[in-house]
Write a protein that binds this DNA or RNA. Structure first.
Lengths: 233, 233
DNA sequence: TCGCTGAAAATTGTTAACAAATATCAGGAA
DNA sequence: TTCCTGATATTTGTTAACAATTTTCAGCGA
């Protein structure tokens, strides 16, 4: 969950000055988190009077936060009726996996072209740390937990394409997390995934962008296929 | 934009029944159009009192519309300072082209797999119509005008992935249009582009998803390269 | 029971006023 | 001149009240 904050704060001395966050921004963050964590159930109504009481603010900034969520496609608003938390069906989840497959492939190719030796070392470190975790705990833990996300996040970051990062690690990540919460489904092939991660890092170290792209697309394609199998079953 | 009228209203003329659009939604549409067309210059400040006067509404719904634009990443808001129309530099434009290259490749592959014979016929019709326009007017016209967009839109639509459509033909299209307005740059290789469009349709007709993807990636990669050359010059 | 009606309640949309922060700019000092 | 200062004006953030619409639900009749 350690996402870099690219709107960096100005200076160390100013670090103590509390950022002038507006109520709207605060509530936007809290609502988005609540939605992504499933505390606000997919498909459920967003009740303005209730939430404004709950957060202790008036409806003005709350409505602005909801409008921003609408722009992010996390809620849908029908005029004179209200906002509903977006809800994904399996077809829509597959659509997102298709996009992720393509874009993380791109990220991998770019990362292979642009990553420095230090960057590759970081990736190796990360995988080594994961290996420790896996051995000390249980193979099940790895893919299901944040370890998988850390790996993907780092590669997308190494791609150097900041819009790609925002898209994959922001919007699409939120939607997929929403879907997982909604269906209580978790990825379920930890050992294989770990092997594939190693192969991908190998390709990155060899600066083989095409291979890295291919491997990542396969890697996510497998997860997509698992989902499709569930759909057909 | 047709009105869904569930209640059996007298219906003297459905066209006259004004849709229950909120002021916020109306102004959102108008602002987005103004931004994408460049009427609100990139980087310029979004002044609430001025706009609320101009549109004849109060600041409440106007601010909601601006917050929604923020969610769409078309404006950036700094607390206590206000909203600015987003402005893209060349690096950011290249980032978008990289994403488009990958995603339109995906769209092409999916379109090749899913498009029906009728769909392919529609594409052929579209290209034939473009060919007429080109011959009757000027080769310059084609790639610069909406013809190019029509072609890309249709393919993305044929992919059957609605989120992909919203992403490519919604968000990314708006941003690229913004960049073109900003730099007054227009694509400049109409003849070659037209040939490439034909090749892509050929691949689609042959149901060759891999080739279609490759060709589309090259097609957009060329446009990206043109941009990079401008950057280095 | 079922479905309809319509008044009451709750919710959403909009506005205007006030509070707080920032931007502007005249005036003065080095 | 150039750079500060600080009073003023403007803009943004927030609230509460009002208007309009939808939802709820008791009452009624077939």
């Amino acid at each position: 969950m350690s996402i870099t904050n690219h709107q960096g704060y100005p200076a160390p001395s100013l670090a103590l000055i509390k950022r002038a966050e507006t109520l709207s921004n605060i509530v936007f963050d809290q609502l988005r988190t609540a939605i992504v964590k499933g505390e606000l159930a997919p498909g459920s109504k967003v009740n303005e009077p209730q939430l404004s009481k709950q957060y202790g603010i008036s409806r003005g900034p709350l409505r602005e936060a909801i409008r921003r969520l609408e722009g992010c496609k996390l809620v849908e608003i029908r005029p004179n009726v209200g906002a509903k938390v977006v809800s994904l069906n399996k077809e829509q989840a597959i659509e997102i996996y298709e996009i992720r497959e393509s874009l993380e492939g791109l990220a991998c190719r770019l990362a292979a072209e642009r990553a420095s030796a230090d960057d590759c070392a970081s990736l190796r470190d990360l995988l080594a740390k994961h290996e420790q975790q896996i051995e000390s705990e249980n193979y099940q833990m790895y893919y299901q937990k944040e370890g998988d996300l850390d790996f993907h996040y780092l590669i997308v970051q190494l791609s150097g394409n900041s819009r790609l990062f925002n898209l994959l690690c922001g919007e699409l990540y939120h939607l997929l997390r929403l879907y997982r919460v909604q269906t209580s489904s978790e990825p379920s092939r930890p050992v294989q995934a770990f092997k594939e991660h190693h192969q991908i890092v190998d390709a990155l170290e060899q600066r083989d962008g095409e291979l890295a792209e291919l491997l990542m697309r396969r890697h996510i394609g497998s997860a997509k296929q698992t989902l499709i199998n569930q759909l057909n079953q």
